[in-house]
Design a protein around this nucleic acid. Structure first.
Lengths: 222, 222
DNA sequence: GGCGATCTGACATTGACCTGAACGGACGCG
DNA sequence: CGCGTCCGTTCAGGTCAATGTCAGATCGCC
């Protein structure tokens, strides 16, 4: 899916972009509304992720003007909690959904998936890893034919590995994925969840790289 | 009957729409597959009239993908004479009937009636889920032979699950289905209705996936 | 062996979910 | 018009899975 990200915060923007790219989408990143306008006029997008506070204007006005111009591209609005009053305005102005900052990246993936499902209707793609069959869209897993239930956090963590096979991820990277960027978790949460994943999905699903982080287990070992 | 018309030819489309409306049906008209997808996911239809050549893709692929997604809405394919080879493919892909262009409007009415009769007349296609027999056209359900009465809301919710078996749906998605997307309901309505469905249809009809949503209960557990 | 990193079982807290009950509007009926 | 019934919605309280934390065990490397 082609996604246009309109966000002026460099840190948040980069995180969102990377996650969306990892989800298999192509992302263009505009820092200001004027850039976003140009982008929308020069190429079609399947989804726009729109921050509401931008250096050169209010996101809502932008959204409204696009809608009045007949643009039907789905918009998902990124809004801070204290702008919550804008929420109703946002739905009013024609946004399809909104995400309240700070949001964790799992939340983001879910919204993007929802839009993409609405627009592609494809049967869910299955990822097969040894005895595991993973339905990313449905958040469901079968192990040796039997369905396995993962909780929200477990799923969110596991998904990170499936989306980046062979890639090593540090504990802090994984924490950033499970928890919104600001919130500090100061314990061995990741270790605990890695353990829970191993118990549910087999000890070899995730490989520990001492001192550096974790990665998906090698195929031949499964 | 609610009919979704997917047709990019303005003249033919308008004629079909007018005829169907004259026959007492309500018609939504999509000019492209992406719009059709949107419509199908946002509201239930009793019949889809599908052109095979559309600006953004092949109708047959669309039909196939809907069938694979578990959609059982009846499709009638509109095909030109020179695409006749697609005819077999169409039936293959799960269409219920086809009309060869140019067709006259009587033909159209007849086909629509046929579908509607098939869906309201005697040998209705029944979806069977364990001890449940579901007549989608009639909004009626039998449980272990005894008929069960669902209210409008209950039915509307249950139908969402039957039309998308295996698919996980979040509470907000279900709310969008029960209430026309704009209206905000801020309570546990969905939970309450899930509860009522379980009481009427058996505790296992709907499976809770904590933190993510609900889906139809697994067959083996019924 | 010593040390830091990682694993694991246990546990308190949280919050998602379930359920019974109550309210009020719509509708039909006398 | 008054009454009762049904349906949709909301609320409050209870339940239980999920979560985050910790302490002690274990592991890998020097």
């Amino acid at each position: 899916m082609r996604i246009l990200l309109v966000e002026d915060d460099a840190v948040l923007g980069a995180a969102v972009r990377d996650q969306a790219v990892a989800d298999g989408h192509s992302v263009d990143w505009a820092l200001r509304l004027s850039d976003a306008r140009d982008a929308l006029l020069s190429a079609p997008y399947d989804l726009v992720l729109l921050d509401l506070m931008l250096p050169d204007g209010r996101g809502l006005d932008f959204l409204k003007s696009r809608r009045q111009a007949g643009d039907v591209t789905p918009f998902v609005v990124l809004t801070a909690l204290d702008q919550i009053s804008d929420r109703i305005d946002a739905l009013d102005a024609g946004s399809d959904d909104y995400l309240i900052k700070p949001f964790d990246l799992y939340e983001l993936s879910a919204r993007i998936r929802a839009v993409s499902r609405r627009y592609s209707g494809n049967p869910n793609p299955l990822v097969v890893l040894g005895e595991l069959e993973i339905d990313l869209a449905n958040c469901s897993i079968r192990r040796a034919g039997k369905s396995v239930q993962l909780t929200r956090r477990e799923w969110s963590l596991f998904e990170a590995f499936v989306q980046r096979p062979n890639q090593l991820m540090s504990k802090s990277q994984l924490e950033d994925r499970l928890y919104s960027f600001d919130s500090e978790v100061e314990s061995n949460t990741i270790e605990v969840y890695i353990g829970r994943l191993r118990r549910k999905l087999g000890a070899q699903v995730v490989e520990t790289v001492r001192g550096l982080g974790y990665r998906l287990g090698k195929a031949e070992e499964r």
